[in-house]
């Protein structure tokens, strides 16, 4: 298995771990009371913002750790640049990731249209972000293994 394939797998696993860990920590702290209270909106707003920051920081740390482990275990240096195949795969994975997020976004808006609580809209949006991230990494893995 090549560096890019291993990195895609690590990216999928780290996304699942980060999101699941953060969700397990934060979700029990959701405010009670009225579903549409200002506190509820503040909670979900901070949930998304903090998750974004933590996710970026954790991905950077995990990526550095992965590169160190890869160098030690294989004796090879990771590629320091993206060539034409990398760029094509990046584009395809972004397209798939974007499509999944847009579908989630539409579902979130539809939940409001049919009169569901705004809390559900936030949950769908976060789930769509998670699914989009996993789809992007899975697309990369697929194209690196099966070609473009």
């Amino acid at each position: 298995m090549t560096y890019q394939e291993k990195k895609s797998i690590v990216s999928i696993l780290s996304t699942i771990l980060i999101t699941a860990g953060y969700w397990a920590y934060m979700y029990p702290q959701r405010p009670g009371g009225g579903l549409e209270s200002a506190e509820t909106f503040r909670y979900w707003g901070s949930f998304v913002l903090v998750l974004t920051v933590i996710s970026i920081a954790a991905h950077i740390v995990i990526s550095i750790a992965f590169n160190i482990v890869y160098r030690i275990s294989t004796g090879e240096k990771e590629p320091g640049f993206a060539d034409e195949l990398d760029k094509i795969i990046e584009l395809k994975s972004h397209r798939n990731s974007f499509l999944v997020f847009i579908l989630g976004f539409m579902a979130a808006m539809a939940s409001l249209v049919i009169g569901q609580p705004s809390q559900l809209m936030f949950v769908i949006l976060i789930a769509a972000g998670f699914a989009a991230d996993v789809t992007g990494s899975a697309s990369k893995l697929y194209h690196y293994r099966r070609g473009v």
Binding site: T2, Y144, G147
Partner: peptide, 12 residues
């Protein structure tokens, strides 16, 4: 001037 992954993909 490419990565080894690209050579692997070409050969396959």
């Amino acid at each position: 001037g490419v990565t080894r992954q690209t050579i692997v993909a070409l050969e396959k």
